[in-house]
């Protein structure tokens, strides 16, 4: 008997490579999920890890840092928040995707949360891109 391998089709799940806590320190949602305003996890709702080793959804920490009370500090340890450039997670952020995720969410929030065409348009454009 002789076996010849023609092809392999694998099923993977992806996970953010974060060492400790699996929940975002701000919204308490798993990193592999999204911040409260996002629909799609991953590229559109990435995470960042600070020099203090605290990790957040990018959108969560952005919003926090935009507030006056934050004074640029990490909400967990009150040290100035800077992303740790050495962490692979921080290098992988696709800012265009993350910003498009943010914009999209703001747009849909303005519609009273009824993002009726959002996913449809989204999927359709993806389809076009890949064709």
């Amino acid at each position: 008997m002789k076996i010849k391998l023609n092809s392999t089709y694998a099923i993977y799940s992806w996970h953010w490579d974060v060492p400790e806590d699996e929940l975002c320190g701000i919204c308490r949602v798993a990193f592999d999920g999204t911040c409260p305003t996002c629909k799609y996890p991953g590229d559109q709702c990435p995470i960042v890890i600070g020099e203090c080793h605290h990790a957040f959804h990018l959108h969560c920490i952005w919003k926090w840092l935009e507030t006056d009370t934050s004074r640029g500090l990490c909400p967990m340890c009150r040290q100035p928040f800077h992303t740790d450039k050495s962490m692979a997670v921080n290098q992988g952020i696709d800012l265009t995707a993350a910003e498009s995720g943010m914009v999209q969410n703001r747009g849909s929030a303005a519609n009273g949360g009824e993002n009726t065409s959002d996913s449809t348009v989204d999927l359709a454009s993806e389809e076009e891109d890949t064709e």
Partner: peptide, 26 residues
């Protein structure tokens, strides 16, 4: 290749969900 392209993420395989296309010479 995936982990190289998507920095900061790792992949977890579900072995029994993988499918292969093979020729068996008998």
């Amino acid at each position: 290749a995936y982990e190289e392209l998507k920095k900061g993420r790792k992949l977890l395989l579900s072995p029994s969900l993988c499918r292969v296309d093979i020729n068996v010479n008998l």
